[in-house]
Amino acid sequence: MGEVSFLYEAKGQVLVIHLPKEFDHHNSRDLRYETDLFLSENYVRRMVFDFSRTVFMDSTGIGILLNRYKQMQRSGGSAAIYGASPQIRRVLAVGGVAKLMPQYASKEAALLG
């Protein structure tokens, strides 16, 4: 609703999702619809989540990541994370995402996998 939420960036068969500063229920209402639309129109083999701007995440973010991870697994693709701060890494660990999705320090590393 007029607020900057997500920015999508397609690099070949990789989709980079730049997550918002506050990755909560309010700021992620459109993510499901938008990524579904993107996936239906494009061939995506790898989904990369950019946390470099993100300072807050709760279990809503975990739900979204887990769902996208499963979606990529089903289609034989992969998912990765980069730019997560210590607090975000803690939330990823508590939410069980840390052991599923590899984390990288830089975008370049995350794109390559």
Binding site: S59, G63, V94, G95
Partner: peptide
Amino acid sequence: FTTDPAGERSGMGFAFMEAF
């Protein structure tokens, strides 16, 4: 546990409250 049929919600809300 989640009541969300779309599966987009993790069902971890209370678990997070207890963890933090």
